[in-house]
């Protein structure tokens, strides 16, 4: 009993379990931090190039934008034409001959002016375009410089990270080796402990077995007695079963005999069809004589029912088993069904 208790305490698990758990936890943490560092830096670097290129595409667009001028021009033309017409109408009233000429000159002048204005406008647009081009170029150069600066920075950061990681890995390696060493020692200790535990267990089982044997030996007589009682019961039941099956086979034999006798005694009438069925309940005396017969289900055809009743009543003595139990169980009262399957 005492040894038993000591066994239980010696196999105390908490002191054996905790260092392992700790080391595992530590390793896990370190590994986790290292992995997190890795996975964190990668997504921050990569998204940049696509955003740059996207912006470049949108910068090319603003070029063709001189939409404002065509809306100005017709207004001014209209004013001028109205003035012209006003003047023409005044001049027409005074002098019609020079009118044509004058108008043509006027028109030519107007076209000339217009041409000049158009040219000027185009020059202005070109100037603007050049200006914008220059600005875009400047912007591109600036951006490029920025990008280069960023790239340099990124490379530097990466370099830094690699260095840090290298350092971390080395520290990790160091830690792992130390851990391994610790584990090895731990395992050795554990093996020793296990051996001790098994030994204790073996001893315990031996003690238990011995105890149980004693108990069983003590119970042996009782068990023997019980077994004998069961055997007796089993034999009795088997005998009953044998008797039962004997009765059953006996009954089947007599069923067949009755069936045969009734088939010979039954004259289905001409009106019988295969659809007709009559059921009669028979009650016999232990002598095999018919005590009573009841039509429990009619075929619907009187001649058919009567033929069945006649057949049942025509047997002077039914073949029945000598065994009284079998008779009582099967033949005291039973049902006969008349249903022609094969008419002549």
């Amino acid at each position: 009993m005492r040894g038993h208790e000591r066994d239980v305490t010696s196999t105390g698990h908490p002191p054996w379990k905790s260092p392992v758990a700790l080391s595992v936890l530590m390793h896990g943490l370190i590994l986790g931090v290292a992995l997190a560092g890795w996975s964190w830096s990668v997504p921050r670097d990569e998204p940049q190039p696509p955003s740059i290129s996207a912006r470049l595409v949108t910068q090319n667009e603003p070029e063709p934008s001189p939409v404002t001028e065509p809306t100005d021009q017709p207004d001014r033309d209209e004013e001028r034409r109205q003035e012209e017409e006003e003047r023409q109408r005044q001049e027409e009233a005074e002098r019609r001959q020079a009118e044509e000429e004058e108008r043509a000159r006027e028109e030519a002048r107007r076209i000339q002016q217009e041409k000049e204005r158009e040219q000027q406008r185009q020059e202005e647009a070109a100037e603007r375009e050049r200006e914008e081009q220059r600005k875009a170029e400047e912007e591109a150069a600036r951006q490029k410089a920025e990008a280069e600066a960023r790239e340099r920075e990124r490379q530097k950061a990466e370099e830094e990270k690699r260095r840090q990681e290298e350092a971390a890995r080395k520290a990790e390696e160091e830690k792992r080796r130390a851990e391994e060493q610790r584990r090895k020692e731990e395992a050795e200790r554990k093996a020793r402990e296990e051996e001790e535990r098994l030994e204790a267990e073996r001893k315990r089982r031996e003690r238990e077995r011995r105890l149980k044997e004693q108990q069983l030996e003590a119970l042996a007589d009782e068990a023997e007695q019980q077994r004998e009682a069961e055997e007796r019961q089993r034999k009795e039941a088997a005998a009953a079963k044998a008797r039962e099956s004997q009765m059953l086979s006996e009954s089947q034999k007599y069923q067949a005999l009755i069936r045969e006798r009734l088939s010979q005694a039954w004259y289905p009438p001409s009106s019988a069809t295969e659809e007709m069925t009559a059921r009669l309940q028979i009650t016999l005396l232990p002598t095999g004589e018919l005590a009573d017969v009841k039509l429990v289900s009619s075929s619907g055809n009187t001649a058919f029912d009567n033929s069945a009743l006649g057949a049942v009543k025509s047997l002077n003595r039914y073949p029945i088993p000598d065994d009284r139990d079998t008779f009582e169980r099967y033949f005291r009262q039973f049902t006969i069904e008349f249903n022609p399957r094969r008419l002549r």
Binding site: L262, S263, W266, A308, F334, T335, E337, N339, R341, R344
Partner: peptide, 9 residues
């Protein structure tokens, strides 16, 4: 017990 008679004389 049910005895079926399916054939006549």
């Amino acid at each position: 017990l049910l005895i079926r008679i399916t054939e006549g004389a």
